[in-house]
C-alpha cells in the first residue's frame, strides 16, 4: 500500500490535468441523466404517441396512424377555439402585466420609508400557490356572496349582481384579471432590477437639459430597459401560454368551453377521455410553439453566462 502511494505521487501533477475534464463530465452526469430521462426522452415519446391511435381503455387497438391525429385536430372547431383562447389569454394578460408591472416598478424605484416591506408585499401574490389564488378569486367573483358584486353595486357601476365566471362573455376577462394580480408583481421585480442598473447620472443630465419626467421615461428609461423588458416578456409569454392551474380551478374551461385553453383541452383529452393519441398531438402543438420562443430566449441568456 505504502509503495503504491509513493508510486502515484510523482505523476500527480499530470493526473490532475487529465482528471479535470473527466471530473467535469462526472459532476454533470446526474443532472443530465435526470433531464434526459424525465424531460427530453418523454418529449420525444409524446411526439411518437401523437402518431398513434391510442385509447387507454382500449389497449388492444393501439396502432400507428401517421399524422391523422393532427388532421383530426385541424378540422376540430374545439381545437381552434382553444387555440384562440390561449392566444387571447396570453396576449392580453402579458400586455396588462407589462404595463402594470412597469407602474409598480417605477413606484418601488423611488426612495421612501418602508421600501423593504413593500417589496416583501409584492412577493405575496407570487408565493401563493396558483390553485389557492384561483379559489380566492373564484369566491370574490361569486354571483351571490362575492365581494366584487358588492363593491361594484356600492359604487354604482352595476345595478344587479353578475355571474362573472358563469357568463361566457366575462369569464375569460375574470380569469385574466386574476392572472394579472398573481404575476404582475413578478414582472415588476424583474423590471425593478433592470431599473436599478440605470445610472442616476443620466437622469441628472436630462434634468439639467430641462427634460420632464415623461420625456425622461421615454428617452432614457424605456430604451435602457429594453433588454430586461424583452426577457420578462418572453418569460411571461411562455408561462401564460401553458396556463393550466388557474383556469382548471376557476372555471374548468367553461362555461361552454369559453375559457378552455390548449393545456386544459389536452388534459381533458388525455385524462378524461383517455385518448392518448389526440391528447399527445395537442401537447406536441403546445410544445412546438413554446419551443420556438424558448430558442429565442436561450440565445438571449446564453450571451450573458458563457461569454
Amino acid at each position: 500500500m505504502i509503495e503504491q502511494k509513493n508510486l502515484t505521487s510523482p505523476t500527480k501533477q499530470s493526473k490532475f490535468q487529465l482528471s479535470e475534464a473527466t471530473l467535469g463530465y462526472i459532476l454533470v452526469a446526474p443532472a443530465l441523466l435526470c433531464i434526459t430521462a424525465i424531460a427530453l426522452y418523454p418529449v420525444l415519446n409524446t411526439f411518437k404517441l401523437s402518431l398513434y391511435y391510442m385509447k387507454l381503455q382500449l389497449p388492444g387497438l393501439t396502432h400507428f396512424v401517421g399524422l391523422q391525429n393532427y388532421g383530426t385536430l385541424f378540422s376540430d372547431s374545439r381545437f381552434w377555439s382553444a387555440t384562440l383562447n390561449t392566444v387571447f389569454f396570453t396576449v392580453v394578460s402579458v400586455a396588462l402585466e407589462l404595463v402594470l408591472g412597469m407602474v409598480m416598478a417605477l413606484l418601488m424605484n423611488k426612495k421612501f420609508k418602508g421600501t423593504g416591506l413593500v417589496r416583501a408585499a409584492v412577493l405575496i401574490p407570487w408565493a401563493i400557490p396558483t390553485v389557492i389564488s384561483a379559489l380566492m378569486w373564484k369566491f370574490i367573483y361569486n354571483d351571490q356572496f362575492g365581494v366584487l358584486n358588492d363593491i361594484l353595486m356600492k359604487i354604482g357601476l352595476i345595478s344587479s349582481y353578475k355571474a362573472w365566471l358563469g357568463n361566457p362573455s366575462s369569464a375569460m376577462s375574470a380569469a385574466i384579471f386574476a392572472d394579472v394580480w398573481k404575476t404582475a408583481p413578478f414582472m415588476a421585480l424583474l423590471l425593478l432590477a433592470g431599473l436599478q442598473n440605470i445610472s442616476q447620472d443620466l437622469y441628472e443630465a436630462a434634468k439639467v437639459d430641462g427634460a420632464g419626467s415623461i420625456r425622461q421615461f421615454f428617452s432614457i428609461t424605456l430604451p435602457l430597459l429594453k433588454p430586461t423588458i424583452l426577457v420578462a416578456l418572453i418569460f411571461r409569454t411562455l408561462d401564460a401560454f401553458r396556463v393550466f392551474d388557474l383556469i382548471f380551478v376557476m372555471t374548468g374551461g367553461g362555461p361552454g368551453n369559453s375559457t378552455e385553453t390548449l393545456s386544459i383541452y389536452a388534459y381533458k383529452t388525455l385524462f378524461r377521455n383517455l385518448d392518448f393519441g389526440i391528447g399527445s398531438a395537442i401537447a406536441v402543438i403546445i410544445f412546438i410553439f413554446v419551443f420556438i420562443f424558448a430558442i429565442f430566449y436561450i440565445k438571449l441568456l446564453d450571451k450573458s453566462i458563457l461569454k
Binding site: 454533470v28 443532472a31 443530465l32 433531464i35 424525465i38 424531460a39 427530453l40 426522452y41 418523454p42 418529449v43 415519446n45 409524446t46 404517441l49 411562455l238 401560454f241 401553458r242 393550466f244 390548449l262 393545456s263 389536452a266 388534459y267 388525455l270 385524462f271 392518448f276 391528447g279 399527445s280 401537447a283 406536441v284 403546445i286 410544445f287 413554446v290 419551443f291 420562443f293 424558448a294 430558442i295 430566449y297 436561450i298 441568456l301 446564453d302 453566462i305 458563457l306
Partner: peptide
C-alpha cells in the same frame, strides 16, 4: 455550452407536453 443550453431549455418545457409518456 451545449449542456447548459440543453438544461436551460427544459425550464421552458410545458408540463403538459411530457405528462402523457411520464404517466
Amino acid at each position: 455550452s451545449i449542456i447548459l443550453s440543453l438544461v436551460l431549455s427544459v425550464s421552458m418545457f410545458p408540463g403538459i407536453a411530457i405528462v402523457s409518456p411520464l404517466f
